[in-house]
Write a protein that binds this DNA or RNA. Structure first.
Lengths: 327, 327
DNA sequence: TTGTACGCGTTATCAA
DNA sequence: TTGATAACGCGTACAA
């Protein structure tokens, strides 16, 4: 690896002159410039980003922490975020915690250490203090810490209502909605369940929430659970669940000879591509991951620029896309 | 941000003593140690990884370049790679080029600049020279540059044969296989097509390759194309395609009232979860992404350690998983 | 056991 | 237009 000094020596100039050519910060005589450019080529010189970053006190990298990048929700979101960051001259460092709380903690520790300029948090298993004391720009997705930490989230209230209305329209009598065991009051997406329940009960429709363990990426497991549930509770005629478990319920229904949507209506939540690649078009509450990604990066860029935010809570609209799993 | 010197000042010692406590490199009297640890806590001191990396001439980061992280193939692979890297003390920087050749070039340029220690390349649209002259450990996935650059790849030859045997078993007469327009001789996965064709023709079965534009992540587009093809060539009774387009063909067949597997057999290639989340279990040639990830990281670690590789070409086994889309 | 001094690669500041 | 010097934060000989 040749350094800027090697180039300077070869071109018979001082290091700072090379730097000026590199960055165009000041005028350099064409002749000197030529000599320097020649030397850079000959030495196959590449500026050291690490040193640059150290000097500028920034790395040009934003990290995104996700529970599992394999999950279509997060991999899609990551695409959009990477896209937006790239447009603005930042690179994305993607960290997947494998649903491991300890690993999340370790990542947070590492990320504090100047290796990145900010973090977009798609995972939220630490104590609020751990986020509050992070010391770097932080954007939380779907998780409320306090009024100071920016939060970007889908309008899950609307999402729950839209789903409820779809069940009502379909004439369902008993709706089961599948939640995440680990979710707390701070997890905003939980609002979809509350909204669903509220609207359904206003219409005198029974509903029931079942929270399952979510942190395994195991379709077979979902499928077995779905079969069990459908067999045990034959009176259920409506299901709301995230895309992947919704697919499992759809498959379970087929295996059990239960007709969809005649005997069972399914609304999937999220709207990732797994809901679309199925043979049967699933009715879906669709989050705009593109918009969430864009907004998250916007907020991050503002934080990085030291701007003050008008609003620390950004809500992104959702919509329902009707498929063949509701009437 | 407090530096190591701030801590030293507060604890009334020299910076190097703090460093010694941090790294356990030498003996420090318990009393001094206590004072230093106290100071670190009070100042909320965090070592600067950038400076550390600069000194050690390494960043502790490995990059992975993929065409699109949204794609289940790459997002799954990235999970496994991240996992393996993490176990070995490295972080993953994931770069998604959005199927853009120019962006790939830019990324390569940036990644040269000491920002990462090595790159795992899941994308391959540059000239061979660009990879040969990279100047850092490089592991190529599914793409042959020359005998010097390590290559990790599934045994696509076996994959093609397994698929062919499945079509033969199912009594197919005319098999269409969907390839990627952009693939060249250097793309190893292309071998699956050659092997398929070879085995089929040995058995006197017609086959035909259709190369489609692959770089858009657009299921609707696949679906429309699949409908078109099935309508135009009704004599086709076998399809091999990557998971996502295979799903599209399955859906198209249902829409057109074509019975699977009676009138049309489908073998999907790759074995990502989209092939499993479907209502219909798709017969799949399954690549072991876990193994590919593990091997890639193994190779990378060896390169980083300066070890010589015995073999620059690692082939990972594939298997076929029978589903309901073949007889 | 502790401290001094320097190097890593870059850039800003000020002087020539 | 160019150069010298200091600074960024850390690690490590070497000296004390």
């Amino acid at each position: 690896m040749s350094s800027i000094r090697d180039v300077a020596k070869k071109a018979n100039v001082a290091a700072c002159t090379v730097s000026r050519v590199l960055n165009g910060t000041a005028n350099v005589s064409p002749e000197t410039r030529m000599r320097i450019e020649q030397a850079m080529k000959e030495l196959n010189y590449i500026p050291n980003e690490l040193a640059r970053g150290m000097f500028k006190q920034k790395a040009g990298i934003v990290a995104m922490l996700v529970p599992n990048i394999r999950h279509p929700y997060f991999s899609s979101l990551a695409t959009y975020i990477e896209d937006e960051l790239y447009k603005n001259g930042y690179k994305l460092m993607l960290c997947s915690t494998g649903d491991d709380i300890g690993r999340e903690k370790e990542y947070l520790k590492i990320l504090k250490s100047n290796i990145v300029d900010g973090v977009i948090m798609g995972v939220n298993n630490q104590k609020p203090e751990d986020y509050q004391e992070f010391g770097k720009p932080l954007v939380m997705l779907d998780y409320y810490v306090d009024d100071k930490i920016p939060l970007v989230v889908s309008d899950h209230c609307a999402g729950g209502r839209l789903a409820a209305e779809e069940f009502i329209r379909s004439g369902c009598k008993y709706v089961l909605h599948i939640g995440n065991e680990a979710d707390t009051e701070r997890v905003i997406s939980y609002e979809s369940h509350k909204a669903l329940q509220e609207v359904l009960s206003e219409h005198g429709i029974r509903s029931r929430e079942l929270d399952i363990k979510w942190n395994t990426f195991d379709f077979q497991g979902y499928l077995e659970l779905a079969m069990l549930i459908l067999e045990k509770y034959p009176e259920i005629d409506g299901i709301m669940a995230a895309d992947m478990p919704a697919c499992a319920f759809l498959k379970a229904a087929y295996k059990l000879g239960k007709k969809v949507p005649e005997e069972l209506c399914i609304v999937s939540y999220d709207g990732t591509y797994v809901a679309r690649t199925n043979v049967v078009e699933i009715t879906t509450v669709h989050q705009s991951l593109k918009e969430i990604g864009k907004v998250s990066v916007d907020v991050m860029l503002k934080l990085l620029a030291g701007e003050r935010l008008k609003e620390n809570y950004v809500r992104v609209g959702v919509e329902i896309k009707k498929g063949e799993t509701t009437k």
